[in-house]
Design a protein around this nucleic acid. Structure first.
Lengths: 165, 165
DNA sequence: ATTGAAATGAATTCTTC
DNA sequence: GAAGAATTCATTTCAAT
């Protein structure tokens, strides 16, 4: 289940189109790709079954939800032992401010992506949910000026590197 | 368009359900929320029109696409001037390895989330797309052990903090 | 494995409240 | 604004290839 899956040109074409607009209909996909709608359904079902497609997620606008300030928190959890990091992860995931959480190599153990109302809200979050905890040795806060989602995720093409110059 | 939008209990209920499963039908939403399907359609259309819902995105499994190694790159771009950072951002966004890009406050100017095949592929990416560029003063690479998406994004509730303890 | 047609079920429109 | 019926359109199944 962690292994790479055989994808042909039709699968890749469908994935590229769906990454552009995840709400494309099978008829639209079929017309673009040049196969029957029922074939598209088969292919997409297989991509779901084999775990290539994990799901469909709503992309929301945090600013419109009163969470116009986003930040990344670099967090050191000490001692870095399973008994402490398990509960830490669960607690952070359950915070309404958390958007994503990463366990990393390097001097900081975790990176937390948060969305808050304003600087006062961020201060409250850092103090109440992080620095006040005994297992949190250090928090470094970095505001997000701007963020971008990048192009479609596709398998590496062996021959074609240095392409984005 | 950057301002917060008035959302009633029905809107919030719909948003919560859609964040759970973005492919819920209007009939399913209607049954859960206790309104008519056509009302759900109205509400969702309005949430799209007012920019609360930005879109629907496919959630893919990078490992299944031969990109089983993910990392965060902390990048300093010097001098940090518009003439350099504009092209830098566009170049990084266009890399097939890039998943997300953040412009940050703090000692590192950018954070790049990348997905690659293996450590050799990561080394090639760092050397060819980052450290070899004159405007890139420094790159710090942190591997991602594990990552989590967090709970639904909802407006802050004034009264209810310290809830995730 | 893919198709095209048929059947099922959902999205969308429209009239009424 | 919300609902419910009616229409349009998409999904899904299936027999045939």
């Amino acid at each position: 289940m962690a292994d790479s899956v055989e994808l042909d040109a039709v699968d890749l074409h469908i994935l590229r189109l769906l990454q552009n607009d995840a709400r494309s209909t099978y008829r639209e996909l079929a017309a673009e790709v040049g196969v029957a709608p029922s074939t598209c359904l088969d292919r997409v079902s297989r991509l779901r079954r084999t775990g290539v497609i994990l799901g469909h997620r709503l992309q929301l606008n945090p600013a419109k939800l009163g969470r116009g300030l986003e930040a990344l928190l670099l967090v050191q959890v000490r001692p870095h032992r399973r008994e402490l990091i398990g509960p830490f992860v669960e607690r952070v995931r359950a915070l309404p401010e958390s958007r994503a959480l990463f366990h990393l190599t390097g001097p900081d153990d975790y990176l937390v992506h948060v969305a808050v109302a304003d600087p006062a809200d961020l201060q409250r979050l850092v103090l109440d949910a992080f620095t006040s905890r005994r297992e949190v040795a250090r928090v470094e806060t970095r505001l997000i000026f701007q963020q971008w989602e990048c192009g479609p995720l596709l398998p590496p093409v062996p021959g074609a590197h240095l392409s984005a110059d």
